[in-house]
Amino acid sequence: MRGLVLTLLNQMVEERLGFEVWERALEVVRPSSGGVYTAGERYDDAELGALVAALADITALPADTLVTDLGRYTLAAFARMHPEHFRDRSARELLLSVDRVIHIEVRKLHPDASLPAFEYETSDPDRLVMLYRSPRRMCAFAVGLVEGVARHYATPIHHRETRCLHRGDDHCRFELAFGEPGLAA
């Protein structure tokens, strides 16, 4: 896992819940990295899961909610860091390019890192079906990304997860419907 996700988690927690909460979570988890996260390094996948679990304990929030928040936060941070990916695209077009964007942003530093895979069903221009396959099973993060995209483009996106890795399916299936840009969801 790229350190970027962990530095963003750190940043989000510090901003929203405060310094202490992050410090307490680190104390609980005691990650092998010592909590020294930089965006460019790679870390054990388990550290993210353990931190999220610890944070859920401390805050009494569901872990999935935290991960979805992180997805939204990541999307917003990404839009600031790499505006070129977002320019001249609709929400649907951006979602269609997610696979490619993730590919570049992960592989550029770690050519052999494993990647989540998105497949698309695109027959209907107002809808989009995204199929998510990843051994990390972070579909809640994907939901956050979709919501982040909706917010960034001010385009309402109704989403439904009709299959899920957590329910024994071999992929998660998100059915998305796009509203008019500029209208609140």
Partner: peptide, 21 residues
């Protein structure tokens, strides 16, 4: 400062990657 250096790293790394690809 760290964020800015990380941002720089991101950008340069991406440029390199795209060029390399």
């Amino acid at each position: 400062a760290r964020r800015r250096s990380e941002q720089l790293l991101e950008e340069r790394a991406r440029e390199l990657f795209v060029a390399n690809e």
